[in-house]
Design a protein around this nucleic acid. Structure first.
Lengths: 197, 197
DNA sequence: GTCTATAGGCAGATAGAC
DNA sequence: GTCTATCTGCCTATAGAC
Protein backbone atom coordinates (compact mmCIF):
# COMPACT_ATOMS: atom_id res chain seq x y z
CA UNK A 1 0.00 0.00 0.00
CA UNK A 2 2.59 2.45 -1.11
CA UNK A 3 0.39 4.56 -3.32
CA UNK A 4 -2.80 6.33 -2.40
CA UNK A 5 -5.36 4.92 -4.78
CA UNK A 6 -8.58 6.34 -6.21
CA UNK A 7 -11.64 4.20 -6.88
CA UNK A 8 -10.54 2.35 -10.04
CA UNK A 9 -7.15 0.73 -10.55
CA UNK A 10 -4.22 2.40 -12.28
CA UNK A 11 -3.21 5.96 -13.01
CA UNK A 12 -5.42 8.27 -15.03
CA UNK A 13 -3.89 7.51 -18.41
CA UNK A 14 -4.35 3.79 -17.82
CA UNK A 15 -7.93 4.22 -16.70
CA UNK A 16 -8.65 6.30 -19.79
CA UNK A 17 -7.20 3.59 -21.99
CA UNK A 18 -9.22 0.92 -20.21
CA UNK A 19 -12.51 2.71 -20.76
CA UNK A 20 -11.67 3.76 -24.30
CA UNK A 21 -10.62 0.26 -25.19
CA UNK A 22 -13.91 -1.18 -24.06
CA UNK A 23 -15.84 1.51 -25.92
CA UNK A 24 -13.97 0.94 -29.18
CA UNK A 25 -14.32 -2.83 -28.97
CA UNK A 26 -18.05 -2.64 -28.30
CA UNK A 27 -19.16 0.47 -30.22
CA UNK A 28 -16.39 1.20 -32.69
CA UNK A 29 -13.96 4.10 -33.01
CA UNK A 30 -16.67 6.27 -34.58
CA UNK A 31 -19.24 5.14 -32.02
CA UNK A 32 -17.94 6.84 -28.90
CA UNK A 33 -16.74 10.29 -27.85
CA UNK A 34 -14.43 11.90 -25.33
CA UNK A 35 -17.58 12.82 -23.43
CA UNK A 36 -18.40 9.14 -22.95
CA UNK A 37 -15.03 8.45 -21.35
CA UNK A 38 -15.16 11.60 -19.27
CA UNK A 39 -18.60 10.78 -17.88
CA UNK A 40 -17.58 7.28 -16.90
CA UNK A 41 -14.38 8.40 -15.15
CA UNK A 42 -16.05 11.51 -13.70
CA UNK A 43 -13.47 13.87 -15.11
CA UNK A 44 -13.77 16.53 -17.82
CA UNK A 45 -12.99 16.18 -21.50
CA UNK A 46 -10.32 18.85 -21.03
CA UNK A 47 -8.46 16.45 -18.75
CA UNK A 48 -8.65 13.77 -21.40
CA UNK A 49 -7.02 16.10 -23.89
CA UNK A 50 -4.18 16.64 -21.42
CA UNK A 51 -3.35 12.92 -21.50
CA UNK A 52 -4.19 12.29 -25.14
CA UNK A 53 -4.16 15.47 -27.25
CA UNK A 54 -6.48 14.07 -29.90
CA UNK A 55 -8.58 11.06 -30.66
CA UNK A 56 -5.96 9.83 -33.08
CA UNK A 57 -3.27 9.77 -30.39
CA UNK A 58 -5.63 7.92 -28.09
CA UNK A 59 -6.35 5.42 -30.82
CA UNK A 60 -2.70 4.79 -31.52
CA UNK A 61 -2.01 4.26 -27.83
CA UNK A 62 -4.89 1.78 -27.69
CA UNK A 63 -3.57 -0.31 -30.55
CA UNK A 64 -0.04 -0.22 -29.18
CA UNK A 65 -1.09 -1.49 -25.78
CA UNK A 66 -3.44 -4.08 -27.26
CA UNK A 67 -0.83 -5.42 -29.67
CA UNK A 68 1.79 -5.64 -26.92
CA UNK A 69 -0.60 -7.52 -24.66
CA UNK A 70 -1.50 -9.90 -27.46
CA UNK A 71 2.14 -10.45 -28.30
CA UNK A 72 2.85 -11.31 -24.67
CA UNK A 73 0.04 -13.85 -24.74
CA UNK A 74 1.57 -15.48 -27.80
CA UNK A 75 4.91 -15.73 -25.99
CA UNK A 76 3.22 -17.43 -23.06
CA UNK A 77 1.56 -19.92 -25.39
CA UNK A 78 4.92 -20.70 -26.99
CA UNK A 79 6.52 -21.21 -23.59
CA UNK A 80 3.83 -23.33 -22.02
CA UNK A 81 2.37 -25.44 -24.80
CA UNK A 82 4.50 -27.86 -26.79
CA UNK A 83 2.33 -29.13 -29.61
CA UNK A 84 0.87 -27.18 -32.49
CA UNK A 85 -2.78 -28.07 -32.06
CA UNK A 86 -2.75 -27.06 -28.41
CA UNK A 87 -1.26 -23.72 -29.44
CA UNK A 88 -3.99 -23.16 -31.99
CA UNK A 89 -6.67 -23.99 -29.45
CA UNK A 90 -5.10 -21.57 -26.98
CA UNK A 91 -4.97 -18.96 -29.71
CA UNK A 92 -8.69 -19.41 -30.33
CA UNK A 93 -9.31 -19.05 -26.61
CA UNK A 94 -7.73 -15.59 -26.68
CA UNK A 95 -10.49 -14.53 -29.05
CA UNK A 96 -13.20 -16.35 -27.12
CA UNK A 97 -12.24 -14.46 -23.96
CA UNK A 98 -12.76 -11.15 -25.78
CA UNK A 99 -16.12 -12.24 -27.15
CA UNK A 100 -17.26 -13.33 -23.70
CA UNK A 101 -17.02 -9.69 -22.67
CA UNK A 102 -19.28 -8.85 -25.61
CA UNK A 103 -16.42 -7.19 -27.43
CA UNK A 104 -14.80 -7.58 -30.81
CA UNK A 105 -11.07 -7.84 -31.35
CA UNK A 106 -9.87 -4.24 -31.20
CA UNK A 107 -8.15 -4.48 -34.56
CA UNK A 108 -11.02 -6.40 -36.11
CA UNK A 109 -13.31 -3.52 -35.21
CA UNK A 110 -10.80 -0.98 -36.50
CA UNK A 111 -10.41 -2.96 -39.71
CA UNK A 112 -14.11 -2.40 -40.40
CA UNK A 113 -13.69 1.35 -39.88
CA UNK A 114 -10.29 1.35 -41.57
CA UNK A 115 -10.93 4.02 -44.18
CA UNK A 116 -12.18 6.52 -41.59
CA UNK A 117 -9.24 6.10 -39.21
CA UNK A 118 -6.74 8.91 -38.57
CA UNK A 119 -3.32 8.50 -40.10
CA UNK A 120 -1.06 6.45 -37.86
CA UNK A 121 -3.76 4.11 -36.67
CA UNK A 122 -4.04 2.31 -39.98
CA UNK A 123 -0.45 1.13 -40.15
CA UNK A 124 -0.74 -0.09 -36.55
CA UNK A 125 -3.79 -2.18 -37.43
CA UNK A 126 -1.95 -3.83 -40.32
CA UNK A 127 1.06 -4.50 -38.10
CA UNK A 128 -1.21 -6.32 -35.65
CA UNK A 129 -2.48 -8.67 -38.34
CA UNK A 130 1.01 -9.17 -39.74
CA UNK A 131 2.31 -10.25 -36.35
CA UNK A 132 -0.55 -12.67 -35.81
CA UNK A 133 -0.26 -14.23 -39.24
CA UNK A 134 3.47 -14.62 -38.88
CA UNK A 135 3.10 -16.35 -35.51
CA UNK A 136 0.36 -18.64 -36.81
CA UNK A 137 2.29 -19.51 -39.96
CA UNK A 138 5.22 -20.57 -37.83
CA UNK A 139 3.04 -22.76 -35.62
CA UNK A 140 1.34 -24.28 -38.66
CA UNK A 141 4.58 -25.01 -40.47
CA UNK A 142 6.12 -26.72 -37.48
CA UNK A 143 2.91 -28.61 -36.81
CA UNK A 144 2.78 -29.95 -40.33
CA UNK A 145 6.44 -30.91 -40.32
CA UNK A 146 5.92 -32.73 -37.03
CA UNK A 147 2.98 -34.59 -38.52
CA UNK A 148 0.51 -33.08 -36.07
CA UNK A 149 -1.34 -30.96 -38.62
CA UNK A 150 -2.52 -31.47 -42.15
CA UNK A 151 -3.58 -28.76 -44.58
CA UNK A 152 -3.30 -27.86 -48.24
CA UNK A 153 -1.55 -24.73 -49.47
CA UNK A 154 1.01 -22.67 -47.64
CA UNK A 155 1.25 -22.12 -43.89
CA UNK A 156 0.76 -18.41 -44.61
CA UNK A 157 -2.49 -19.13 -46.42
CA UNK A 158 -3.74 -21.32 -43.60
CA UNK A 159 -2.71 -18.64 -41.10
CA UNK A 160 -4.79 -16.07 -42.93
CA UNK A 161 -7.74 -18.44 -42.96
CA UNK A 162 -7.50 -18.78 -39.20
CA UNK A 163 -7.20 -15.05 -38.54
CA UNK A 164 -10.05 -14.29 -40.93
CA UNK A 165 -12.13 -17.16 -39.61
CA UNK A 166 -11.76 -16.11 -36.00
CA UNK A 167 -12.35 -12.42 -36.69
CA UNK A 168 -15.41 -13.18 -38.78
CA UNK A 169 -16.80 -15.73 -36.36
CA UNK A 170 -16.59 -13.11 -33.59
CA UNK A 171 -18.17 -10.50 -35.80
CA UNK A 172 -21.18 -12.67 -36.57
CA UNK A 173 -21.53 -14.37 -33.18
CA UNK A 174 -21.59 -11.18 -31.14
CA UNK A 175 -24.94 -9.83 -32.35
CA UNK A 176 -26.46 -13.18 -31.36
CA UNK A 177 -24.78 -12.84 -27.95
CA UNK A 178 -23.84 -16.47 -28.33
CA UNK A 179 -20.31 -17.60 -27.50
CA UNK A 180 -21.20 -21.22 -28.27
CA UNK A 181 -21.78 -20.20 -31.89
CA UNK A 182 -18.21 -18.91 -31.96
CA UNK A 183 -16.70 -21.95 -30.31
CA UNK A 184 -18.53 -24.25 -32.69
CA UNK A 185 -16.91 -22.48 -35.63
CA UNK A 186 -13.48 -22.61 -34.03
CA UNK A 187 -13.81 -26.35 -33.58
CA UNK A 188 -14.88 -26.77 -37.20
CA UNK A 189 -12.04 -24.54 -38.35
CA UNK A 190 -9.30 -26.28 -36.37
CA UNK A 191 -10.82 -29.70 -36.94
CA UNK A 192 -10.12 -29.26 -40.63
CA UNK A 193 -6.40 -28.97 -39.82
CA UNK A 194 -5.99 -32.08 -37.65
CA UNK A 195 -4.68 -35.35 -39.03
CA UNK A 196 -7.63 -37.48 -37.93
CA UNK A 197 -10.64 -36.12 -39.78
CA UNK B 1 -36.99 5.85 -73.78
CA UNK B 2 -40.23 6.38 -71.97
CA UNK B 3 -38.93 8.35 -69.01
CA UNK B 4 -36.94 11.55 -68.99
CA UNK B 5 -33.81 10.70 -67.09
CA UNK B 6 -31.45 12.85 -65.00
CA UNK B 7 -27.71 12.27 -64.87
CA UNK B 8 -27.53 9.12 -62.70
CA UNK B 9 -29.80 6.12 -63.09
CA UNK B 10 -33.00 5.60 -61.13
CA UNK B 11 -35.36 7.83 -59.22
CA UNK B 12 -34.18 9.93 -56.30
CA UNK B 13 -34.89 7.36 -53.60
CA UNK B 14 -32.92 4.75 -55.51
CA UNK B 15 -30.01 7.09 -56.07
CA UNK B 16 -29.98 7.95 -52.37
CA UNK B 17 -29.90 4.27 -51.49
CA UNK B 18 -27.09 3.64 -53.96
CA UNK B 19 -24.86 6.33 -52.49
CA UNK B 20 -25.77 5.49 -48.89
CA UNK B 21 -25.08 1.82 -49.50
CA UNK B 22 -21.62 2.53 -50.79
CA UNK B 23 -20.90 4.87 -47.88
CA UNK B 24 -22.02 2.36 -45.27
CA UNK B 25 -20.08 -0.48 -46.85
CA UNK B 26 -16.90 1.55 -47.06
CA UNK B 27 -17.08 3.87 -44.01
CA UNK B 28 -19.65 2.30 -41.70
CA UNK B 29 -23.06 3.48 -40.54
CA UNK B 30 -21.44 5.86 -38.03
CA UNK B 31 -18.88 7.02 -40.56
CA UNK B 32 -21.07 9.01 -42.93
CA UNK B 33 -23.73 11.69 -42.72
CA UNK B 34 -26.73 12.94 -44.64
CA UNK B 35 -24.50 15.79 -45.75
CA UNK B 36 -22.19 13.31 -47.52
CA UNK B 37 -25.07 11.88 -49.55
CA UNK B 38 -26.51 15.30 -50.28
CA UNK B 39 -23.20 16.64 -51.55
CA UNK B 40 -22.68 13.71 -53.87
CA UNK B 41 -26.19 13.90 -55.35
CA UNK B 42 -26.17 17.71 -55.38
CA UNK B 43 -29.38 17.99 -53.41
CA UNK B 44 -30.01 19.27 -49.87
CA UNK B 45 -30.25 17.26 -46.68
CA UNK B 46 -33.82 18.46 -46.36
CA UNK B 47 -34.67 16.56 -49.53
CA UNK B 48 -33.11 13.46 -48.07
CA UNK B 49 -35.36 13.71 -45.05
CA UNK B 50 -38.35 13.84 -47.38
CA UNK B 51 -37.47 10.40 -48.77
CA UNK B 52 -36.11 8.89 -45.56
CA UNK B 53 -37.31 10.68 -42.41
CA UNK B 54 -34.38 9.55 -40.30
CA UNK B 55 -31.12 7.72 -40.55
CA UNK B 56 -32.73 4.65 -39.01
CA UNK B 57 -35.35 4.46 -41.75
CA UNK B 58 -32.64 4.84 -44.37
CA UNK B 59 -30.64 2.09 -42.74
CA UNK B 60 -33.58 -0.30 -42.66
CA UNK B 61 -34.30 0.35 -46.32
CA UNK B 62 -30.65 -0.36 -47.13
CA UNK B 63 -30.66 -3.71 -45.40
CA UNK B 64 -33.99 -4.67 -46.95
CA UNK B 65 -32.80 -3.98 -50.46
CA UNK B 66 -29.43 -5.61 -49.88
CA UNK B 67 -30.97 -8.76 -48.41
CA UNK B 68 -33.46 -9.04 -51.27
CA UNK B 69 -30.71 -8.67 -53.85
CA UNK B 70 -28.60 -11.27 -52.09
CA UNK B 71 -31.53 -13.63 -51.87
CA UNK B 72 -32.13 -13.27 -55.59
CA UNK B 73 -28.49 -14.12 -56.24
CA UNK B 74 -28.88 -17.29 -54.19
CA UNK B 75 -31.90 -18.26 -56.25
CA UNK B 76 -29.92 -17.79 -59.44
CA UNK B 77 -27.14 -19.98 -58.10
CA UNK B 78 -29.66 -22.68 -57.24
CA UNK B 79 -31.18 -22.50 -60.70
CA UNK B 80 -27.99 -22.46 -62.71
CA UNK B 81 -25.50 -24.60 -60.84
CA UNK B 82 -26.18 -28.25 -60.11
CA UNK B 83 -23.43 -29.40 -57.80
CA UNK B 84 -22.71 -28.28 -54.27
CA UNK B 85 -19.09 -27.25 -54.68
CA UNK B 86 -19.90 -25.05 -57.67
CA UNK B 87 -22.60 -23.38 -55.57
CA UNK B 88 -20.15 -22.70 -52.76
CA UNK B 89 -17.62 -21.24 -55.17
CA UNK B 90 -20.32 -19.02 -56.66
CA UNK B 91 -21.32 -17.98 -53.16
CA UNK B 92 -17.75 -16.97 -52.43
CA UNK B 93 -17.68 -14.99 -55.64
CA UNK B 94 -20.60 -12.88 -54.39
CA UNK B 95 -18.38 -11.71 -51.58
CA UNK B 96 -15.33 -11.28 -53.80
CA UNK B 97 -17.32 -8.96 -56.07
CA UNK B 98 -18.12 -6.74 -53.09
CA UNK B 99 -14.52 -6.67 -51.94
CA UNK B 100 -13.35 -5.77 -55.42
CA UNK B 101 -15.24 -2.50 -55.01
CA UNK B 102 -13.31 -1.93 -51.78
CA UNK B 103 -16.44 -2.54 -49.73
CA UNK B 104 -17.41 -4.85 -46.91
CA UNK B 105 -20.58 -6.89 -46.86
CA UNK B 106 -23.24 -4.42 -45.75
CA UNK B 107 -24.37 -6.64 -42.89
CA UNK B 108 -20.82 -7.53 -41.93
CA UNK B 109 -20.11 -3.85 -41.45
CA UNK B 110 -23.35 -3.36 -39.53
CA UNK B 111 -22.54 -6.37 -37.36
CA UNK B 112 -19.41 -4.55 -36.18
CA UNK B 113 -21.47 -1.49 -35.26
CA UNK B 114 -24.36 -3.61 -34.03
CA UNK B 115 -24.70 -2.13 -30.55
CA UNK B 116 -24.92 1.42 -31.88
CA UNK B 117 -27.60 0.71 -34.49
CA UNK B 118 -31.11 2.14 -34.25
CA UNK B 119 -33.86 -0.26 -33.31
CA UNK B 120 -35.19 -2.07 -36.35
CA UNK B 121 -31.85 -2.36 -38.09
CA UNK B 122 -30.52 -4.97 -35.70
CA UNK B 123 -33.19 -7.55 -36.32
CA UNK B 124 -32.74 -7.06 -40.06
CA UNK B 125 -29.02 -7.77 -39.77
CA UNK B 126 -29.67 -11.01 -37.91
CA UNK B 127 -32.27 -12.03 -40.49
CA UNK B 128 -29.67 -11.60 -43.22
CA UNK B 129 -27.26 -13.97 -41.52
CA UNK B 130 -30.04 -16.44 -40.75
CA UNK B 131 -31.04 -16.59 -44.40
CA UNK B 132 -27.47 -17.11 -45.56
CA UNK B 133 -26.73 -19.82 -43.03
CA UNK B 134 -29.92 -21.64 -43.86
CA UNK B 135 -29.14 -21.60 -47.57
CA UNK B 136 -25.57 -22.76 -46.99
CA UNK B 137 -26.62 -25.51 -44.61
CA UNK B 138 -28.99 -26.85 -47.25
CA UNK B 139 -26.28 -26.83 -49.91
CA UNK B 140 -23.81 -28.48 -47.54
CA UNK B 141 -26.23 -31.18 -46.46
CA UNK B 142 -27.12 -32.11 -50.01
CA UNK B 143 -23.50 -31.98 -51.06
CA UNK B 144 -22.48 -34.36 -48.31
CA UNK B 145 -25.32 -36.75 -49.02
CA UNK B 146 -24.37 -36.76 -52.71
CA UNK B 147 -20.78 -37.54 -51.76
CA UNK B 148 -19.47 -34.31 -53.23
CA UNK B 149 -18.51 -32.73 -49.90
CA UNK B 150 -16.92 -34.00 -46.73
CA UNK B 151 -16.91 -32.25 -43.34
CA UNK B 152 -17.24 -33.03 -39.67
CA UNK B 153 -20.04 -31.72 -37.50
CA UNK B 154 -23.40 -30.44 -38.64
CA UNK B 155 -24.21 -28.66 -41.91
CA UNK B 156 -25.32 -25.71 -39.77
CA UNK B 157 -21.94 -25.57 -38.09
CA UNK B 158 -20.12 -25.73 -41.40
CA UNK B 159 -22.43 -23.04 -42.77
CA UNK B 160 -21.52 -20.73 -39.91
CA UNK B 161 -17.85 -21.39 -40.51
CA UNK B 162 -18.26 -20.35 -44.13
CA UNK B 163 -20.22 -17.19 -43.34
CA UNK B 164 -17.79 -16.23 -40.60
CA UNK B 165 -14.79 -17.15 -42.70
CA UNK B 166 -15.91 -15.08 -45.68
CA UNK B 167 -16.94 -12.09 -43.59
CA UNK B 168 -13.68 -12.17 -41.66
CA UNK B 169 -11.54 -12.71 -44.73
CA UNK B 170 -13.12 -9.62 -46.30
CA UNK B 171 -12.65 -7.63 -43.12
CA UNK B 172 -8.93 -8.38 -42.97
CA UNK B 173 -8.19 -8.32 -46.71
CA UNK B 174 -9.73 -4.93 -47.37
CA UNK B 175 -7.20 -2.82 -45.42
CA UNK B 176 -4.48 -4.51 -47.46
CA UNK B 177 -6.43 -3.67 -50.62
CA UNK B 178 -5.64 -7.19 -51.76
CA UNK B 179 -8.39 -9.32 -53.28
CA UNK B 180 -5.93 -12.19 -53.85
CA UNK B 181 -5.55 -12.47 -50.10
CA UNK B 182 -9.29 -13.01 -49.86
CA UNK B 183 -9.47 -15.52 -52.69
CA UNK B 184 -6.61 -17.49 -51.20
CA UNK B 185 -8.55 -17.88 -47.97
CA UNK B 186 -11.72 -18.89 -49.80
CA UNK B 187 -9.82 -21.60 -51.61
CA UNK B 188 -8.35 -22.86 -48.34
CA UNK B 189 -11.76 -22.73 -46.70
CA UNK B 190 -13.63 -24.59 -49.44
CA UNK B 191 -10.72 -26.91 -50.09
CA UNK B 192 -11.21 -28.28 -46.58
CA UNK B 193 -14.71 -29.35 -47.56
CA UNK B 194 -13.93 -31.22 -50.77
CA UNK B 195 -13.51 -34.98 -50.90
CA UNK B 196 -10.06 -34.97 -52.47
CA UNK B 197 -7.76 -33.23 -50.00
C1' DG C 1 -40.14 17.06 -54.47
C1' DT C 2 -36.85 20.37 -53.62
C1' DC C 3 -35.49 24.39 -51.69
C1' DT C 4 -33.86 28.20 -47.78
C1' DA C 5 -33.29 28.88 -43.24
C1' DT C 6 -32.66 27.46 -38.89
C1' DA C 7 -33.07 24.99 -34.65
C1' DG C 8 -30.75 22.32 -30.94
C1' DG C 9 -27.38 19.30 -29.78
C1' DC C 10 -23.02 17.12 -29.68
C1' DA C 11 -18.40 16.57 -31.65
C1' DG C 12 -13.28 17.40 -30.95
C1' DA C 13 -10.46 20.78 -29.28
C1' DT C 14 -8.13 25.00 -26.77
C1' DA C 15 -7.04 28.95 -23.34
C1' DG C 16 -6.07 29.96 -19.08
C1' DA C 17 -7.16 29.80 -13.88
C1' DC C 18 -6.15 26.96 -9.94
C1' DG D 1 -3.33 17.39 -13.51
C1' DT D 2 -7.80 19.01 -13.36
C1' DC D 3 -10.91 22.44 -13.79
C1' DT D 4 -14.38 26.29 -16.08
C1' DA D 5 -15.50 28.40 -20.02
C1' DT D 6 -15.74 28.67 -24.66
C1' DC D 7 -15.08 28.03 -29.73
C1' DT D 8 -16.05 26.26 -34.13
C1' DG D 9 -17.90 23.00 -36.78
C1' DC D 10 -20.82 19.26 -37.94
C1' DC D 11 -24.76 16.44 -36.93
C1' DT D 12 -29.84 15.10 -37.42
C1' DA D 13 -33.96 17.13 -38.02
C1' DT D 14 -37.93 20.46 -38.96
C1' DA D 15 -40.81 24.55 -40.66
C1' DG D 16 -42.49 26.57 -44.34
C1' DA D 17 -41.92 28.80 -49.11
C1' DC D 18 -41.95 27.51 -53.94
Amino acid sequence: MATTRQRPAGDTATRILDVAERLVQSRGFNGFSYADIAAELEITTASLHYHFPGKGELGRALIGRYAARFSDALDVIDDELPDALAKLVAYGNLYAAVLREKRLCLCGMLAAEYHTLPEGMREAVLAFFDTNEKWLAHVLREGREAGALRFGGTPEGAARMIVGGLEGAMLVARPYDDVARFEEVVQQLLGGLTINV
